[in-house]
Design a protein around this nucleic acid. Structure first.
Length: 678
RNA sequence: GGCGAGGUAGCUCAGCUGGUUAGAGCGCAUGAUUCAUAAUCAUGAGGUCGGCGGUUCAAUCCCGCCUCUCGCUACCA
């Protein structure tokens, strides 16, 4: 592995419309912080960049809902996020934000450079425009009736009732959420980054040049490249963001995914106004992006293409993306409040920052999605941190206190076993280093704990509490060795457990010692006065865990209550309008799954009028066998539509339950096919 | 459906380019021990390495098919 002069470590910018939860921590911030702390301890030149992502449509919507300005929203969450990271010991060199002046300038200049060098393609498309509010509407600003489930409050990008993703133009009766007026389609011009042109470069750089990347990252990139890249719009019609810095682009801003990664550059600039280019534009700097798997394509495909287009920046050396963390066997979800929020954890478990850091690292989703449970959190604290690490330290200190008044005793003679034990430290250190250099944090942590295990074994084998009656000189040697192990543990565990490391150093009255000294057996000199022993970790009781579990159970109950709300009645219609719908009872004659789809079923229906083909999205809930012979209600005068190449002539009526399950609306006695439903 | 990642002991995970009896931590059982927050130490039980085929002298590791989980994507009148 090439030795770099400088290191630039970035973490995904959390979106400033909500607080940070354990999923963010486990996937991005904890591993990044371990890596950075390690590099610093090795004396490497490293900058650690973080910040809030504060632009984009969801923030403007949240602001509108709360009746405040977008700035107020981002101010609130930026402050909350920044503060909780700080309390949790994520050791950013800077945690800034994309609404900063310097970011606006940087992003603006970046765009301008690409524009001036002809790196963009201009395209005109038709988008909804609100004539009353005098602006184009992002998909999220348009509501209307979902063509699938009839929800009248579906958004232009997605219906939140049935989960379908939509195009704004799909909506029935579209309405602008700004003015309530009916939007009109109008042409608008945007700039696109022609990603397709960068395909050969990306292919060579990633697929040939970075085979060492994690398999999930490499595989995802390969998948994208093999599918073929499309030009992507880098601008939007919106009034919240970085204005597009060219003439004729008034009212347009940079699309949020274009401006956000530039935030890494801006924040470095803010931190190091004079020397930032040493990190961003010098081949002897290694840049590493810590992200979650949802961000792979942005950091491995799009941002590198942007950097390449600009021309003067380096590309990331690695992008160690993690998978996702689940919570108590369920997906973490901000909207469902299914999460452990960092700021709440810090309040509920004061002084236990390292317990969460430990649990999240030991169980990090490095290779696949993992599950966080409070029981596991308690077990790892009680059985590992307390029983192995804390206990060993406590034993060494308490024995020294008891026998030698807390003064590091002098070594008489080292036995072979003593020497072997001490020699083990350097081996463990090498293993930890190797793990961390290769982004294997789980493994590094386990290795670190092996040092404490070694200490416990050493004490059990040498039994100083027995020897004290017969051979005080030997006990002095034993405790000296044990204390050296404890001191080494204080140093070795620092990247992972910085708070405990500091407390242990304090307990040992250990001065600042270089990482390279780990493995030495004279970190504490004889005659050195130790501090008062206190407990490094405390047990976590069942009631603490039960409190957290109850909170989650309450959330679940609340979610179930909220999940089903009968949608409000639609506006009145006349009988004539109703009677235009021709609904008949029909019988299913044949049913077969449509190949190459998950949900579509092709049905042949005897409507009494004729026999016709209808395609319906019910394959997930019914088998063909149970459908044949069934009587159903059919809207027969719905305009035909092609689905997967099959002409669908009508619609089967179904009721969708709160959990999405579909149920037929069917006559409760057999009737003739073709009978009218009214 | 397409693509990607994953399916290894009760739980969480290792297993690097195929090679002797498949490993670790936690949990469990038994024994030892009492300096220590009943904390530790030793020993042990426990796996048809998702299923079926194939390549090979030899496959957890390579190839094909199937199946389950997660993600991206298509589809839902």
């Amino acid at each position: 592995m090439k030795e770099f002069k400088r290191h630039l470590v970035t973490t995904a910018l959390p979106y400033a419309n909500g607080p940070v939860h354990i999923g963010h921590l486990a996937g991005v911030y904890v591993p990044a912080d371990i890596y950075v702390r390690y590099l610093r301890l090795r004396g490497r030149d490293v900058v650690f960049i973080g910040g809030s992502d504060e632009h984009g449509v969801p923030i403007t919507i949240k602001a509108r809902q709360a009746g405040v300005s977008p700035q107020e929203i981002v101010d609130r969450y930026h402050a909350l996020i920044k503060d909780s990271f700080e309390r949790f010991g994520i050791s950013f060199d800077i945690y800034s934000r994309t609404t900063s002046k310097i970011h606006h300038q940087t992003a603006s200049n970046f765009f301008k450079t690409l524009y001036d060098n002809g790196k963009f393609v201009e395209k005109e498309t038709e988008q909804y425009y609100d004539a009353e509010a005098h602006q184009f509407l992002a998909d999220r600003y348009i509501t209307g009736t979902c063509p699938h489930c009839g929800n009248e409050r579906a958004y232009g990008d997605q219906c939140e009732q049935c989960g379908t993703s939509l195009n704004a133009t799909d909506l029935i009766n579209p309405k602008s959420t700004l003015s309530g007026s009916v939007p009109v389609l109008r042409a608008t011009k945007h700039w696109y980054l022609p990603l397709d042109q960068y395909e050969p470069f990306l292919r060579d750089w990633i697929l040939e040049g970075h085979k060492e990347w994690k398999s999930n990252v490499y595989g995802q990139c390969k998948s994208w490249l093999d599918l073929g890249l499309q030009p992507r719009a880098v601008t939007r019609d919106l009034d919240w963001g970085v204005p597009v810095p060219i003439k004729g682009a008034e009212g347009k801003v940079l699309y949020v995914w274009f401006d956000a990664p530039i935030g890494y550059i801006s924040n470095t600039k803010e931190l190091l106004p004079d020397t930032w280019e040493d990190y961003w534009k010098s081949d002897d700097c290694s840049m590493v992006h810590f992200i979650g798997k949802d961000n792979i394509v942005f950091h491995c495909i799009i941002f590198p293409a942007m950097l390449k287009a600009e021309g003067s920046f380096i590309l990331p050396q690695n992008v160690p993306a993690n998978e996702f963390l689940n919570l108590e066997n369920d997906k973490i979800s901000t909207s469902r409040n299914w999460a452990v929020w960092l700021h709440e954890y810090l309040d509920d478990f004061p002084g236990k920052e390292d317990v969460l850091r430990y649990t999240l690292t030991a169980n990090a989703p490095e290779t696949k999605d993992n599950n966080f449970t409070w029981k596991d959190f308690q077990d790892r604290n009680n059985n590992e941190l307390v029983a192995i690490y804390g206990n060993f330290v406590n034993r060494a200190l308490v024995l020294t206190q008891k026998y030698f008044d807390g003064i590091v005793p002098k070594i008489a003679d080292l036995t072979d076993y003593d020497k072997e034990t001490l020699a083990e430290i350097a081996l463990i250190r090498a293993n930890v280093e190797n793990s961390l250099e290769n982004f294997r944090f789980r493994e590094g942590l386990k290795e670190t704990m092996n040092l404490a295990r070694l200490g416990n074994k050493y004490l059990a084998d040498t039994e100083p509490w027995k020897l004290i009656k017969t051979d005080e000189a030997r006990v002095k040697t034993i405790l000296n060795v044990a204390l050296q192990l404890a001191a080494n543990m204080a140093l070795l565990s620092e990247p992972f457990l910085p708070f405990s490391s500091a407390r242990l150093k304090e307990m040992l009255h250990l001065p600042e010692i270089a990482w390279e000294c780990i493995g030495n057996s004279d970190l504490l000199t004889s005659g050195h006065m130790l501090g008062e022993p206190f407990l490094l970790f405390e047990k976590i009781e069942d009631e603490d865990i039960e409190k957290q579990l109850k909170r989650l159970a309450d959330t679940k109950v609340a979610n179930e209550k909220n999940s089903f709300k009968a949608s409000p009645a639609k506006s009145d219609i006349s009988y004539d309008e109703f009677s235009t719908m021709d609904i008949r009872v029909g019988t299913v004659l044949e049913a077969a799954k449509v190949p190459k789809t998950d949900k579509l079923m092709k049905l042949l229906i005897d409507t009494g009028i004729d026999k016709r083909t209808i395609v319906s999205g019910i394959a997930a809930y019914f088998t063909p066998e149970e459908l044949v012979g069934k009587q159903v209600c059919v809207l027969v005068n719905l305009a035909p539509r092609k689905l997967k190449g099959i002409d669908s002539q009508g619609m089967i009526l179904l009721a969708e339950d709160a959990d999405g399950k579909l149920v037929f609306v069917t006559p409760d006695q057999a009737v003739m096919n073709g009978v009218v439903v009214k």
